[in-house]
Write a protein that binds this DNA or RNA. Structure first.
Lengths: 156, 156
DNA sequence: TATTGTTATACTCTATAACTATA
DNA sequence: TATAGTTATAGAGTATAACAATA
């Protein structure tokens, strides 16, 4: 990196953008995780539910792909949201191996509540930036995502 | 958030800056962690070593404070870097309970090597941004850190 | 009583790989 | 053989809380 804050010639923690990214990200995601505890929900569950909300139906394998996780990991998250009666699974009529996952009516009601928590957390954390700064930050993050070809969502 | 990309009225994942922060941070930190495997070192060990490099001496409790971790967690990281002969501890002459941790000569040599790995990872990940964009990103992240009063480094 | 460092325990998250049932 | 989903196992990372030694 171009900026060196120390005089030793050896890069310090704060010289790396990755350090600042990690520090800020941990703070905002940690706050979000704590806020979600109010609904006894993990961040990965929110991501899965929100994906189902917009897709209507998906298989565990599709969700694993979208979330950047293994099928085994997704299997456990699905078990949790099924236990809460937020998601149901049915056999895929065209493939006896596959499942079709859907939100239950209860799940449909929960997603907007979790989205509200996400909104609140995000608004609060980024409120010290101006609207223009937030737009610029978003632009830079999207650019980094694209140019580094991130494959999945990679929760936590 | 001001921007809504979906038409459902319910915020989607990509509507939150926290989502983008997490996604980018996971990618850059994951890459760094993998790069550090070449030296069989964890990110938390790098952070601890770099803190000792700039402080000359520190107690586990001071490091725990600086890293945003518990003393118990730091205790284990110290055990690992001691096993590699990168850090030594001695009794604090003024307080029989406390330890003074220092880098060994071997540790002094390792820190610049790890810093080189960190440099390489950071440069590669952020190279698609212009110098000006990197400076702006840094400014925004520092601003967010300050206005949200992050206490520690909170590795991983 | 309070603090330092250690340790036992537990919990969360996730990967790997073996397993079954289909295809 | 290959794929979908499940599960057993393991490991990383961290917190909590109890502990011994010292202040």
């Amino acid at each position: 990196m171009e900026t060196r804050f120390n005089s030793s010639g050896v890069a310090g923690l704060e010289d790396h953008l990755g350090y600042w990214m990690r520090r800020v990200s941990n703070q905002v995601s940690g706050g979000f995780a704590r806020a979600l505890e109010e609904r006894e929900t993990a961040v990965a569950e929110w991501v899965l539910l929100r994906l189902l909300f917009e897709r209507e139906e998906a298989s565990p394998a599709e969700l694993a792909q979208a979330m950047g996780m293994t099928r085994g990991a997704v299997s456990k998250i699905v078990a949790k949201v099924q236990a809460k009666d937020w998601v149901v699974s049915s056999e895929d009529p065209e493939d006896g191996r596959a499942l079709r996952l859907r939100l239950t009516r209860k799940g449909q009601r929960v997603v907007p509540e979790l989205a509200e928590i996400a909104d609140r957390n995000d608004t609060q954390f980024f409120r010290c930036l101006s609207r223009k700064e937030r737009a610029e930050l978003r632009r830079l993050l999207v650019k980094l995502t694209e140019c580094n070809e991130i494959r999945g969502i990679a929760v936590e």
